[in-house]
């Protein structure tokens, strides 16, 4: 069982952490360098976590559990106007990032209003490429109930946030509803506001666990971090991608941030030690996000084996 953790520490000697993780059979998911600091998102075998803890203590770094690591969450607001940003949406997105998730912020083109709110097919498909979504709504319960239409067709779990208390039974299409964070014009800094952000993270955690349980019933042929590692090794051009995270992990695959037409064959022919090619155990199709490549690993029931 791999455990998601986040290492924060000095840049000096951080390669010791990277080496140790690789020796233990773990994966480095993301590396963020900010001047002399570094933040590493790591998957490490849970039985060897103590070794990593010892090393990070020695390097005066900090190692915390990052329950959302290796997942991608969409934070969706009705638009990208000043009414929704920056406070609520950025606070939620930043808080999710601190718990290890890769967060994408999205503003709908016509998500505003009560009667006139809409979502289109492209936006729905783009949100469906994530592992979970957070929809941020306002302070009026009538509007929150009415705007259910925006996420009715979304297949990934949707956590809805808003101001007033609403019974879960009144929002049947939402995975969970987190109250007390409607439209606000200031940053979250009070203990109660931070508590609400914690509740959103917990709710997203439960949503992801539900997806993990579903996947466990029919396990994937191989794990997404392993695909990520293999693509990174065998398609070195991905490291020249300008994106901060050239390979984004999902629960059921990866998104490779390279142009689809030019690199689909290279990604498809990535091979594993077991003798199979990525194209045989996964679907490789264009992502709705820019011109990227979306890799979705097939379950064991379709390929007939797991490695």
């Amino acid at each position: 069982m791999l455990e998601p953790v986040m290492f924060t520490g000095g840049l000096y000697k951080h390669d010791l952490v990277v080496e140790l993780v690789e020796d233990l059979g773990g994966y480095i998911l993301q590396k963020n360098v900010t001047q002399s600091e570094i933040i590493l998102l790591i998957l490490v075998p849970s039985e060897d976590k103590a070794a990593l803890e010892d090393l990070s203590k020695e390097l005066r770094g900090e190692l915390v559990r990052a329950p959302l690591a290796g997942t991608e969450v969409a934070v969706v607001t009705p638009t990208l106007a000043i009414h929704h940003l920056p406070h609520t949406a950025c606070d939620i997105a930043e808080y999710l990032r601190r718990h290890g998730s890769k967060t994408n912020m999205m503003g709908l083109a016509r998500g505003v209003g009560r009667e006139i709110a809409q979502i289109n097919e492209y936006e729905t498909a783009l949100i469906n490429e994530h592992d979970a979504a957070v929809f941020i709504f306002g302070n009026f319960q009538e509007c929150i109930k009415k705007k259910e239409g925006l996420y009715r067709n979304i297949t990934v779990p949707v956590v809805v946030t808003g101001g007033p208390q609403i019974e879960a039974s009144e929002l049947p299409y939402a995975f969970e509803y987190v109250p007390a964070i409607g439209r606000v014009a200031h940053r979250a800094r009070k203990a109660t506001e931070i508590g609400t952000l914690d509740r959103i993270v917990e709710s997203i955690g439960r949503a992801l666990d539900k997806t993990r349980t579903t996947i466990a019933k029919d396990p994937l042929t191989t794990s997404p971090p392993r695909v990520m590692d293999a693509v990174r090794e065998q398609v070195p051009d991905v490291m020249f991608s300008y994106s901060p995270l050239p390979i984004a992990l999902n629960l059921n695959g990866v998104r490779v941030k390279l142009p689809f037409e030019a690199y689909k064959d290279a990604v498809s022919s990535v091979s594993f030690d077991e003798g199979v090619k990525l194209g045989e155990i996964a679907t490789i199709r264009p992502s709705r996000m820019k011109d990227y490549i979306l890799v979705r690993i097939l379950p064991a029931s379709e390929t007939g084996f797991v490695f």
Binding site: G138, N139, F140, Q141, E142, G163, P164, Q165, G182, R183, V184, A185, H186
Partner: peptide, 23 residues
């Protein structure tokens, strides 16, 4: 004043208006 069962909305809009006017 907000029509319907929207006491929460009314309270929050009060804070919101204050915040924006103050800003």
């Amino acid at each position: 004043e907000v029509t319907g069962q929207e006491e929460y909305g009314a309270k929050k809009y009060r804070e919101l208006i204050m915040d924006i006017l103050q800003d």
